[in-house]
Design a protein around this nucleic acid. Structure first.
Lengths: 120, 120
DNA sequence: TTGATAGTGAACCATGTGGTTCACTGTAAG
DNA sequence: CTTACAGTGAACCACATGGTTCACTATCAA
């Protein structure tokens, strides 16, 4: 895949900004318009629009404009590739240093449990 | 923690470059000097030095200079926070899509029930 | 001692980023 | 119809980034 590296570039860059991470968290709670987000993060509409565009470009957010308001929601991409990259390298790290992080293990167990109960 | 967000900024930014991800992979295999890395990535010493500095700043790499050669190796930080952040949001994502799935399921069931009763 | 080697720092360059203002379009609503 | 509102795009700004060259220091080796 040629796009794989470019995609990681785009996603990690999108995540490397506290405002954009905040927007993702907000959208995790509920969908929002550009105006909503701009107000919450004390920014102009234009400024927020740019952030949303970056997130959309990275596939982390999708938007739809109906009437004059553009509604933003979490996108289809669920950070699989990024999580995989990090996990892979955590394993590398671990192999070289040997120890496992409790929090992430805990989270992963929780998620696996969720996935399992969902499958039933 | 005030530093938490700044740290995520620095780490994700450090990961948002294909060369730097490559350096991390290389260092996962074995330690290397600036010259080694510069050659492997077809770059000047100065250029590679900058990348290494970014990785070091983010705590992902540590270096030690002995004699004239500076040896780079994987750092103490094992992407715990970043992995945790991503895992957490993967769960958020999942939760929201699960809810959506359920709603859709519910609607579909209702529609089928309607269709059935209409047909009678 | 002399020369090659490894890295460093300053200066420079083009491009990207995070933000603004301003002028504009399209839509909603009195 | 008129006014207010949501968003958009262009232009601009200061600063960061990814890279270079060049001049320099420090170290290793013959």
């Amino acid at each position: 895949m040629v796009h794989y590296q470019a995609r990681l570039d785009a996603t990690f860059a999108a995540l490397a900004d506290v405002t954009r991470r905040g927007v993702l968290e907000q959208l995790g709670g509920s969908d929002a318009s550009i105006t909503d987000l701009a107000q919450r993060f004390h920014m102009t509409l234009t400024g927020m629009k740019k952030h949303v565009s970056v997130l959309e470009q990275a596939g982390l957010v999708i938007t739809e404009k109906v009437g004059r308001v553009r509604t933003c929601k979490l996108g289809q991409r669920r950070l699989e590739e990024e999580a995989a990259w990090i996990e892979q390298h955590r394993q590398l790290w671990s192999a070289r240093f040997d120890a496992l992080d409790k929090l992430v293990e805990h989270l992963k167990r929780k998620e696996k449990a969720n996935a399992r109960s969902k499958r039933r």
